[in-house]
Simulated scan of single mutants.
Amino acid sequence: MSKPSDHTKSSPSQSAKVRAQKRGRWAEALTALVLRLSGHRILARNFKTQVGEIDVIAKRGSVLCFIEVKARADAAQAAAAIGARQRQRIQRAAELYLCQNPAFQTCDVRFDVALVTGPLHLTLVRDAWRPG
């Protein structure tokens, strides 16, 4: 039986990155589930553009929500992970989404943050910021 070559082994930093990506995917799936259970319709997940990315786009009634999901050890770390530049990128991506989906242009727009601090612990911060 042959040994795997050295180039197939992952470094500690790669495995940490993979774990963080898995944690992020889990947090986004949990957020989408919680939103669906609270009456939201999930319109998109991982909406990527050249100007930015939006983790979850959901609609409930006449409110269109652009949700950034952060998974960290505690809520303070998660909230601190969303800086002004990231908010601007999300806002630009939201503008592009609205241009591509004119049916939603009459909706009220809200920017929310989902703070995931455990396997099943999610805090949804509604109207976390306003464009400006």
Rank of each mutant, 00 (worst) to 15 (best):
R92H: 13
I90Q: 14
L37H: 03
A84S: 07
A94K: 04
Q88S: 11
K3V: 06
L30P: 01
V69G: 01
A16F: 12
Q88W: 01
R41H: 13
E53P: 12
K70C: 06
V18W: 12
L124H: 06
P4C: 07
D74M: 06
V63F: 08
W129C: 05
I82M: 04
N46F: 05
A76E: 15
Q91C: 12
L124F: 03
V125Q: 06
N46G: 09
R92Q: 15
R87W: 12
P119Q: 05
S2M: 04
Q21N: 11
R89S: 09
T8A: 15
H7T: 13
V18S: 10
Q88P: 13
A103K: 11
E53K: 03
D108Y: 00
C99H: 15
L115F: 07
V56A: 01
R60P: 06
V125T: 07
N101H: 15
K70D: 14
K48L: 12
A76Q: 10
A29L: 13
Y97W: 02
G118A: 04
S15F: 07
V18L: 14
G24S: 02
L64N: 01
H40W: 07
C99L: 14
G118T: 08
G52A: 12
T8Q: 08
R89E: 14
D6E: 08
V51H: 06
V109C: 00
P131H: 02
V125C: 11
L33P: 00
Q21K: 09
A114N: 05
S15T: 15
I82F: 10
R110T: 13
V69P: 08
R36S: 11
D127P: 10
K17W: 06
A94Q: 04
R36Y: 01
H7D: 10
D55Y: 00
D55W: 00
S10G: 15
T31R: 03
V63C: 06
I54K: 04
S10L: 08
